[in-house]
Write a protein that binds this DNA or RNA. Structure first.
Lengths: 269, 269
DNA sequence: TCGAACGTATCATAGTATAATAACAATTAT
DNA sequence: ATAATTGTTATTATACTATGATACGTTCGA
């Protein structure tokens, strides 16, 4: 509990509604390894006391944001969470613009295709077109991964200014997803530097063993990329030269055709 | 404003946190035709006064649930909305079970494949695998449609008891999406009745003109279906007999193989 | 340049969220 | 079976927090 001069994690701003913020914590308590939570588990994960958890969970349930199993009394996400994602996709103009190109690309190369966007120091997959042997986690939009550990993140970073690249390479988080995830920041820096000229990144074994990913940036030429198109393939069937021959041209073509017109200002962090 | 004996739309329960409920209203104010909203638009759409809207919007922004364009001062959904959908998908065991089968089916028939679940009197698409000429709205999970207007909804309804079917056919909502959307409840009733024996539904022109959809239920034999697999195809290239020959068997096979084991109890409304 | 519409900031007040407590139900161990 | 334990639901006085009216700035459009 380490009471540290009352940080309380709540801004004492009068424009800040603590009750709402606390309620959101319940929503965020759910993730891939916490798919349904009891009241006390919720309390534990949110750091709220029993009563507060009870009130918020009850409110969210009444508002249709949480499902409640009458048998087990456990809460779980409701369909409303999907509806929010649907609304999001309409608000993100890039998704609409990209979708037909992504489908085209996916059909052409017959492998998994993703659209990733930068989300602070992470990337988030906003659209995923899974193929035959795609992992479940890789078939659902909304997954967030450390930008430095993904080809999409690296290729986006390569479009940044030198200083920004350096701070990012120094400070952005890394996580050892596999035994071969690159944790050496210098090696990542090399890849990013190479990508400045090449305009693409190929990475191996970062998220899953024997998975190779290749990414090209979506950008207004001369500006920072805020998105990337990425393909995931099996390392066995796709040596780098085959990727460069059979995927890269189409990938870059797709990425370029998605890129907004040079005059439009799409301001997404 | 029609003050009706203070309905206030808020339960005066002590386990109900009004502030949280109001905050959620802001989230729900966004949809496909309201992708970014100014403060006053938000106030208008939520029915909250300016100050309340200000406080909630600000809180949601600080909590990373709303993006704010510094130029236009307009709010829009954040990436967090996608993350919630990601969490949802992990919580819905059906999605994980279905995904490989859906991919298989999609590859085999080369047409758009959807997984739909019942959500009260609507269906919601929880997984969508778009193909070449798929409409944007049809390529994103989370869309909710009146159950009676979709083949998925109709085929699910066909697994219900006679009484339940009748009340549903009488009370569930309908909406004329196209000039040829079926609004005649008797005709829908016929289709549902036929589906009781056939085990599938084929519908035409309901959501989009010249679109034909076909759906088979995901169910434990003898129990009510709570999900369905659906294909969308062009009416031009897919007359009904071709659908029955080249799609139906694989569709039903996929739906059956997704269906849970007869003993498991998956309690999703 | 002006005016109107919109966003931002401030503050006293009331009302609502709070958290402690108690009653109740459902597991688990004995 | 029974008891003990854990977890969930219900109740209430209190204090704090959300409230919304108001006033101030800013940004548009005329």
């Amino acid at each position: 509990m380490a009471a540290q001069d009352e940080p309380k994690s709540e801004k004492q701003n009068t424009l800040y509604v603590g009750a709402l913020a606390k309620g959101l914590r319940l929503l965020r308590a759910f993730d891939e390894s916490h798919t349904q939570l009891s009241l006390s588990e919720l309390a534990a994960r949110t750091g709220l006391d029993k009563s507060a958890t009870q009130r918020f969970a009850n409110t969210l349930h009444l508002e249709g944001m949480l499902e409640k199993d009458p048998r087990t009394r456990r809460y779980s996400p409701s369909h409303a969470w999907l509806q929010l994602a649907y609304a999001y996709c309409w608000s993100d103009t890039l998704v609409a613009r990209a979708m037909p190109r992504l489908i085209e690309l996916s059909q052409h190369i017959g492998e998994t295709v993703n659209l990733a966007e930068l989300s602070n120091d992470h990337i988030i997959y906003v659209s995923r077109l899974p193929c035959k042997r795609t992992q479940f986690a890789a078939s659902i939009a909304g997954r967030r991964l450390p930008a430095l550990s993904t080809s999409a993140g690296r290729v986006m970073l390569s479009t940044f200014s030198r200083e920004e690249r350096e701070t990012a390479l120094r400070t952005w988080p890394l996580h050892p997803y596999t035994s071969r995830t690159t944790l050496d920041r210098d090696r990542i820096a090399e890849m990013v530097t190479q990508a400045v000229d090449l305009g693409y990144v190929i990475s191996h074994h970062e998220m899953i063993l024997n998975e190779t990913t290749i990414a090209a940036p979506v950008r207004i030429p001369g500006q920072q990329a805020f998105a990337a198109v990425q393909c995931s393939v099996s390392s066995y069937s796709w040596p780098e030269d085959r990727i460069r021959a059979e995927i890269l041209p189409y990938l870059q073509d797709a990425a370029n055709s998605i890129s907004p017109a040079p005059d439009s200002q799409d301001a997404r962090t």
